[in-house]
């Protein structure tokens, strides 16, 4: 028995060690560039010091400003479009697909299995090379939405799978119209899934390069400007940009997490 528990102990800590290594591997670069963005010596910022110069450079750089606005537009529109589509798809699969549920689910997850660059290139082929259409914000938003759609679908499906649809019926027999039942009962109960879908789609579209790159031509977005700047070497401004984005993503996830936990402890 003793040797068994020793083996269990060893297995547990080997796995734990791999987990810790993974965290270090994933977060060391992020933390490193946080220091680098704030340092006078971006290459080796230890001991760390505090110099906001790179952030000031970033904020005053007009290319980054217009890129930021473009990215924001693309990301917001993509988040809404892909979440709406994903929501329809989720309800369709869970409620109305019947025996074809698996078929539709696989189809709706399809874009997940085509890489971003192929989505970008194939969309460009269709719009530009076949129809002669120039790339623009609309096509970029649509192509990004296709990519994010599958994520939105899976996130909301995971949430709505647990939802008891008879809740809507309960509201309707209480005298609510179907729309009111959706608004007052279903939406609040599934809000964390919908919010998660919006945030993930927004962030993916904000930071994805491949799709926007092939569909926007010369219009700058944040990832494309960052990618362009890389040709001239990594600059502290890029570290600053990356740090800001990382911080924003973290903030969004923390808000979502706390919100999901709150709705779990009191109601539900």
């Amino acid at each position: 028995m003793d040797s068994m528990s020793l083996k269990d102990f060893a297995a547990k800590w080997t796995m734990g060690l791999i987990l810790i290594t993974a965290y270090v591997f994933l977060y060391m670069p992020i933390v490193h560039i946080l220091f680098a963005s704030l340092s006078n010596h971006p290459n080796f910022p230890y001991p760390p010091n505090f110099n906001p110069k790179s952030y000031v450079n970033l904020a005053t750089n007009s290319i980054y400003q217009s890129a930021f606005v473009n990215s924001l537009i693309i990301a917001s529109c993509t988040a809404v479009l892909s979440t709406v589509m994903g929501f329809l798809a989720t309800i369709g699969v869970l409620r109305f697909a019947g025996k074809r549920a698996l078929f539709y689910a696989v189809f709706f997850a399809g874009p997940l299995f085509v890489s971003e660059i192929l989505l970008g290139i194939s969309s460009m082929s269709l719009y530009y090379l076949v129809f002669g259409l120039q790339g623009n914000m609309v096509t970029a938003i649509i192509a990004n939405s296709v990519h994010c759609f599958s994520f939105c679908f899976l996130i909301m499906a995971a949430m709505l799978y647990k939802y008891d649809w008879r809740m809507n019926e309960a509201a309707i027999v209480c005298g609510a119209t179907p729309f009111r039942a959706f608004l007052e009962v279903m939406l609040p109960l599934t809000w964390s899934g919908i919010m998660g879908s919006l945030i993930v789609a927004f962030v993916l579209a904000l930071n994805g390069l491949d799709i926007s790159f092939y569909l926007l031509g010369a219009t700058p977005t944040m990832p494309s400007v960052a990618w362009g700047a890389l040709r001239y070497g990594v600059k502290p401004e890029l570290y600053a940009l990356s740090t800001i984005i990382n911080a924003a993503v973290f903030l969004a996830i923390i808000v979502l997490f706390l919100k999901a936990r709150n709705t779990k402890t009191a109601p539900v």
Binding site: D164, R166, M167, A170, L189
Partner: peptide, 15 residues
């Protein structure tokens, strides 16, 4: 104008 009681009660958990 009916009332209905369900097997799983289906009380709104957020209310």
């Amino acid at each position: 104008g009916i009332g209905m009681v369900f097997q799983e009660f289906l009380l709104f958990p957020h209310r």
